[in-house]
């Protein structure tokens, strides 16, 4: 057995699993985090995408042991109890998901992109989502949603900057 301890969505979680367990299996079967989906199981479809140490990865292609000691973000960690994350809000507003099976992966690929780049070009968005297959939407609305999310996040960061400056008088 392999003992693993990692931070998942801000919480420390531990498990003892057979070495051949993938990160995806660990998340779904040991921790009941079923947002990441088992699609192709060979790294083509992106339905299992999670963010490990800031980078989008296919959790079906990572052994649980490789994730030991790392920071993992799954779709369950995106929204708070009170608010959807701006990316989720933008996807909702744009009607960018239909059946939703690819959604957790697409949203996390978008998050990894936007964490790095708050003003991505259409080409950069296409590039970031190229590892996530969607059989419903045709992608156009997803790309619009990521652009919308980028706008929301830029606004949010501007507001935070304004609030952080005490010399700015409130009207």
């Amino acid at each position: 057995m392999t003992d693993v301890t990692m931070t998942i969505n801000g919480q420390t979680r531990s498990a003892s699993v057979p070495p051949e367990t993938t990160l995806l299996q660990l998340l779904r079967e040991n921790f009941n985090l079923t947002g990441a989906k088992l699609g192709c199981d060979v790294g083509d479809c992106g339905a299992c995408t999670v963010i490990v140490d800031g980078q989008a990865v296919n959790s079906c292609l990572m052994l649980a042991g490789q994730a030991d000691g790392r920071q993992v973000l799954t779709i369950e960690g995106l929204a708070s109890r009170e608010h959807l994350h701006p990316i989720q809000k933008a996807f909702e507003n744009s009607g960018a998901l239909q059946c939703g099976f690819c959604g957790p992966g697409v949203l996390l690929s978008a998050k990894a992109l936007l964490d790095d780049n708050l003003d991505p070009s259409t080409q950069e968005i296409r590039d970031a989502l190229s590892g996530n297959l969607c059989r419903c939407t045709g992608y156009t609305k997803m790309i619009e949603a990521v652009q919308e999310a980028a706008r929301l996040l830029r606004e949010e960061s501007r507001t935070q900057l304004t609030h952080a400056r005490p010399e700015v008088a409130t009207p």
Binding site: S109, L113, D127
Partner: peptide, 9 residues
């Protein structure tokens, strides 16, 4: 090569 997820690993 591949997509972002594959290039990251």
């Amino acid at each position: 090569i591949g997509a972002a997820q594959t290039r990251n690993l």
